[in-house]
Design a protein around this nucleic acid. Structure first.
Lengths: 127, 127
DNA sequence: AATTTATATATGAATATACGTATATAGTAA
DNA sequence: TTACTATATACGTATATTCATATATAAATT
């Protein structure tokens, strides 16, 4: 199998597949929150976006499958972040979109909600 | 009906819908060719992308429905171009993607093919 | 008017996607 | 071990998307 290769370089990010990925609002909002916040655990995203846990998990799974995000486990929590080795076009695109869409709905409401979710999570769960 | 409004300002371009639109390879290639060439008629696009006429027409219809392109009829030909009043984020995005993807497949092959298609069309059809 | 060319749309089948609900896995704590 | 929390997956269903084929519209030409 191609496991070793997959872990070091990622399968070339297919542009059309990448756009299809961002074509679902929950995933687009998730990508923008990750771009903005750096790293978020599933429960923070679930709360910030107001979606069910399986729905959040499934969409994160898609983002992972296509290679947009990577994960880090810390105890019971799994933290998601944008892959650090995204192609330039993907990174530029997210930056441009985040800049231009951050202050219009539904994205504008996500920022305060994710901040509250982070605050709550960090205070409730030690540190 | 909202005809008058629709013709002057366009219905706010929904970001997720916009991405879903570009999530289909034929439409993504089409959008990049229009960005690159400015204006193309259906037959030029059909030939450049090597797709069937109904398929090309349907995808152009989607691009039109979402408000990414506008058309101009000239005799029997209908010329498509990107809308001039796209929101900044959409325009920036297309520019960034065109710049970064132009020289990798399948986009890299489209440029020479569309040039040939344009040359043939212009020579065969007067001027 | 009849024909030809360019473009658009309708129809039906195949496939893909999203969602809710139920359940599985894995870590933590008791 | 048992119980609890966080996250992931499976399953069935509803809906959306895509395509090929056939047909419709509209301009140009004869």
């Amino acid at each position: 199998m191609t496991q070793a290769a997959a872990s070091t370089e990622h399968a070339r990010l297919d542009p059309a597949r990448f756009f299809r990925l961002l074509g679902e609002e929950t995933r687009l909002r998730t990508a923008l929150l990750l771009h903005q916040q750096g790293e978020l655990c599933v429960c923070e995203l679930t709360e910030a976006l107001g979606v069910s846990q399986p729905k959040m998990s499934r969409h994160l799974g898609h983002l992972r499958d296509v290679g947009l995000v990577e994960t880090r486990r810390s105890g019971q929590w799994i933290h998601y972040r944008l892959r650090s080795d995204l192609p330039a076009w993907a990174h530029d695109l997210l930056t441009a979109v985040a800049r231009d869409l951050a202050d219009e709905p539904p994205f504008s409401g996500d920022t305060p909600r994710v901040r509250r979710a982070i605050a709550r999570h960090r205070s409730e769960c030690g540190r």
